[in-house]
Simulated assay, not measured.
Amino acid sequence: MRKDPLLRFVLILFAGFLFFCALYFAKSILIPLSFSALLSMLILPLCKKLEHWKFPRWLAILSCFLVAIIIIGAFVTLFIFQVISFTDNLPMYKELINSKIGHIQRFLEGLIKVSPKDQTAFMKEKMSGFMSNGGEYIKVAFVETTGTFATIGIVFICTFFFLYFRDRFKNFILKIANPIYEEKTRMIITASSKVAARYLSGVFIVIIILSVLNSVGLMIIGLDNAIFFGISVAILNIIPYIGVPIGAVLPVVMALITRESLWSAVGVIAVFSFNQFIENNFLTPNIVGNKVNINPLATIIVLLIGGNLWGVSGMIIFLPFLGVLKITLDHVKPLNPYAYLISTDETETSILSRIKSLFNRKK
């Protein structure tokens, strides 16, 4: 293999293909385990703090679970109430949509010379398949929802045992590693755990702040169900670059339906654009930090891979795992070029850092 670079490249390519095949076909097992690993990294600092205060390990873990459930439960409960409020207004929105469709049909009649009756018949024909399979869609949605709750239970159980047996996992990694690199291996384990914990806790804080900013901005515009849309778009911000544009589509459409002026829709776009600017340049660099400083190209590639292999779960999970991988690459000298390839210069991560550098330069 050393004498034949082509053979080495082919074998590496084949190994990579097998690796991604394994990720795809084992996703039903790996997705809950991955969420459990990330959640355990998130809870670990608080768990260690409680153990330092003489809590038994099992009690410290359960106490962390209780805190997490209270915080996440309050957030989810608020969101559910907003969803209920939104669904209660659907009949009103239906009338507004029918009114808007009437205007559009009359416009199309003058443009393409097709009567509203023919347009309605065409729409009914296209919708008939969806309506006839509506029961099947509801059944699939119910099964998916039930599966989600079962997965959440598995995630919490696995997280408990990941935290409870964490010393065993750490010793296992140290045993299989070369004894010469034991100190470096310990550094990698500690750094990876810290970066994952800071990343996940920071993301959650940013979601809360964005939920408030989005909701307040939409309330100022006067959009109905502003809190519902504000929280929805903030949650989708987990998916870099594309989450916010996708989430903004529905509130923009609702602004077009419920308001006569186009300026309401423009205002919605302006609110999300401004908040996205604040998040990219001030919130994320200072709350999440620059430890997961992955460049945009690597981020997009990881999102594409994660989305194709594990769907939305992959788009959420793969990025923090890439950050953990980068920590490993940074600490292993032969792999430093790969860390450099996927990273970005910390001084270029935000406008705030540039302002700080200019201020320090003037000093």
Rank of each mutant, 00 (worst) to 15 (best):
L335T: 12
S357T: 15
V271M: 05
R106P: 04
N286S: 09
F81C: 09
N89Y: 10
L163M: 09
F149C: 04
R2C: 03
S99H: 13
S115K: 11
L303N: 04
G222T: 03
I43N: 02
F282L: 15
S193A: 09
G135C: 07
S343Y: 08
F142G: 07
H331T: 01
F169I: 14
K184V: 06
A265G: 07
V302R: 01
G267Q: 07
I351M: 11
A68K: 03
E183I: 10
M219L: 12
N237L: 04
Y340V: 10
S357F: 14
I205M: 07
K126D: 04
L210P: 02
I238R: 02
L33T: 00
E144D: 10
G243S: 00
G135H: 13
T146W: 14
K356V: 14
G230M: 10
R2V: 08
L352D: 09
L358R: 15
A191C: 06
M1N: 08
I221V: 12
F35H: 02
R2D: 03
F228R: 01
A191K: 15
L322K: 09
A141P: 07
G243D: 00
I84E: 12
N280F: 03
K49L: 11
T120D: 15
G307P: 09
P320S: 08
S343G: 11
A141G: 12
P56M: 01
S350M: 09
G110N: 13
F122N: 12
I242E: 01
F272E: 00
V302K: 04
Y340I: 11
I157Y: 10
I104Y: 10
P45I: 01
Q276F: 08
I227M: 11
K139R: 13
N214S: 04
L33W: 00
I278W: 00
S264A: 14
V332F: 07
T146Q: 11
E346A: 14
V216E: 02
L62C: 13
S192P: 08
N275S: 03
Y24G: 07
N133E: 09
L38N: 00
I287Y: 02
Q276K: 06
D167F: 02
I61M: 06
F17Y: 09
S261Y: 00
L62H: 06
D345W: 09
G247K: 04
I157A: 14
T284K: 15
H103F: 15
I239E: 01
L325W: 12
L11K: 11
C64I: 10
S232I: 13
G134T: 09
V203H: 05
N280D: 11
I157E: 00
L39H: 02
T349E: 14
D4G: 05
C21T: 15
G134R: 09
S36Q: 01
L223M: 06
C64H: 05
V140A: 11
F204V: 10
K170D: 08
F282V: 15
L78Y: 05
E95Q: 14
I227Q: 02
I138N: 13
I43P: 00
A60F: 04
F321E: 07
T145V: 15
A234I: 05
F165Y: 10
F359P: 04
S313W: 12
M41V: 05
F86R: 11
L11P: 08
T159R: 01
S313V: 03
L163S: 08
Y137R: 13
P334I: 05
M254L: 14
I294R: 00
L200C: 10
F79M: 05
P179R: 06
T120V: 13
S353K: 11
Y164Q: 04
N295E: 03
G230Q: 08
L13R: 06
I294F: 02
